[in-house]
C-alpha cells in the first residue's frame, strides 16, 4: 500500500515539451511511472519519447484516461495550467513549478476548494512510492520500498532524511514533498491523515520549517487523531525574523512570535512527537518506533 500514487496512476505531464518537462518525464518513465500523455498548448499531435501530446489537459484526460497530472509549466503560466488541471478534472495534480506569484495561487486555491482534486505543491519535489511510481523530480535511486511515510516542506532536506533512512535499511511507503510556498494544496494534516489511513505505514517522519502555522496545526491533529507514531524535524532555528530563507513561505514575521521554530517544536513535543536536533536523530526516533 501507499498514498497518492502507485502503479495504477495514469499520468499526464503538463509542459512535457519544455527542457525540464522532457528531462523529468524520461526519469519518471525510467522509474516505472505510467506516463500516458503530455499536454502543451499548440503542440497537440506531437510525441515525446513516444508519448502522445495534446493541446489541452481535458483532451489528454479523455483520450488516455489520465487521472493524475504533473505540472512543469513556467511560473508566469502555471496558474493557468493549474486551473486547467482542476477543470479537467483529475484526481491528483502535482505542481513542481517554483515561483508562482502568491496572488495567482490565492485564486487557484479558491478554485481548488470547489473541486475534489488533490493538489500537491506548488514549489515541491513531488511524490514517490518507491518501487512503483514517482511524480516529479525526486531522485529515485535514494529511495527504498518499506513502511515509513515521509512528508516534508523541502526538497533536498527530504533527500537528506531519506538517504539516512535508506542507509540504515529503513524503506518508505510514500514520500510527499508538500512544497515551500505560503499557499499550498496538500498540507501536513492532509498528508498525515492519508498516512494514518494507510495500513502499511508504521511510522512517519515529518520535516517542517519556519513560517506559517501548518506544523502547529499538524501537532494538534497528531495529538487528537493519530495512532501511527511521528518523528519531526524543524529547519530554520537560527533564522532571523523578517528574512525570507529561500522558500517564499519560510519567513518568521517581524515582531510577533508566529512561525518560529521554537513554537513548532514546542507544539510537536506537546503532542508527543519527538523532534530531532539533527536529521540523524530523526532517523534514530523512527528506528525506535519500528
Amino acid at each position: 500500500m501507499s498514498i497518492l500514487v502507485d502503479n495504477d496512476s495514469r499520468v499526464v505531464v503538463q509542459g512535457i515539451t519544455g527542457g525540464e518537462g522532457k528531462f523529468h518525464t524520461r526519469q519518471m518513465v525510467e522509474y516505472g511511472t505510467n506516463v500516458v500523455a503530455g499536454a502543451v498548448p499548440g503542440k497537440g499531435g506531437q510525441e515525446v519519447d513516444g508519448i502522445p501530446v495534446y493541446d489541452t489537459v481535458d483532451r489528454a484526460a479523455r483520450e488516455e484516461n489520465a487521472d493524475t497530472s504533473v505540472v512543469f509549466v513556467p511560473p508566469a503560466f502555471a496558474a493557468d495550467a493549474l486551473f486547467e488541471a482542476l477543470d479537467a478534472p483529475l484526481d491528483l495534480v502535482v505542481a513542481i513549478t517554483e515561483g508562482i506569484p502568491q496572488q495567482d495561487m490565492s485564486k487557484v486555491y479558491r478554485k481548488l476548494r470547489e473541486t475534489d482534486t488533490q493538489l500537491v505543491g506548488p514549489n515541491c519535489p513531488g511524490v514517490i512510492t518507491p518501487g512503483q511510481a514517482k511524480l516529479g523530480i525526486l531522485p529515485g535511486n535514494i529511495f527504498e520500498s518499506g513502511n515509513v511515510g515521509l512528508v516534508s516542506r523541502s526538497g533536498t532536506l527530504t533527500y537528506q532524511v531519506v538517504d539516512n533512512l535508506t542507509k540504515r535499511g529503513i524503506g518508505q511507503t510514500t514520500a510527499v514533498g508538500i512544497g515551500g510556498d505560503p499557499i499550498i494544496g496538500t498540507d501536513f494534516v492532509d498528508a498525515l491523515e492519508m498516512f494514518e489511513n494507510d495500513p502499511d505505514t508504521k511510522a512517519i517522519a515529518m520535516c517542517g520549517e519556519i513560517g506559517g502555522e501548518d506544523e502547529e496545526e499538524a501537532a494538534r491533529y497528531i495529538g487528537e487523531y493519530m495512532d501511527t507514531p511521528v518523528a519531526g524535524f524543524i529547519a530554520g532555528r537560527t533564522a532571523p525574523p523578517g528574512k525570507r530563507m529561500g522558500h517564499a513561505g519560510a519567513i518568521v514575521s517581524g515582531g510577533g512570535g508566529t512561525g518560529t521554530a521554537e513554537s513548532k517544536i514546542d507544539a510537536l513535543n506537546d503532542a508527543g512527537v519527538p523532534v530531532g536536533d539533527t536529521p540523524e536523530e530523526v532517523v534514530d526516533h523512527i528506528e525506535g518506533f519500528l
Binding site: T238, R244, M245, A250
Partner: peptide, 29 residues
C-alpha cells in the same frame, strides 16, 4: 541567489532552502 546575511563567521553554501537552513542550524548546534 537566495542570500541572507547573518552575523557569524561560518560561511554556508548549499542547495535547497530546507537543507541550507538545516546546515545553519547545525552550525549553531
Amino acid at each position: 541567489f537566495d542570500y541572507v546575511r547573518l552575523s557569524g563567521n561560518v560561511g554556508i553554501i548549499g542547495n535547497g532552502a530546507g537543507l541550507v537552513m538545516t546546515t545553519l542550524d547545525l552550525v549553531d548546534y
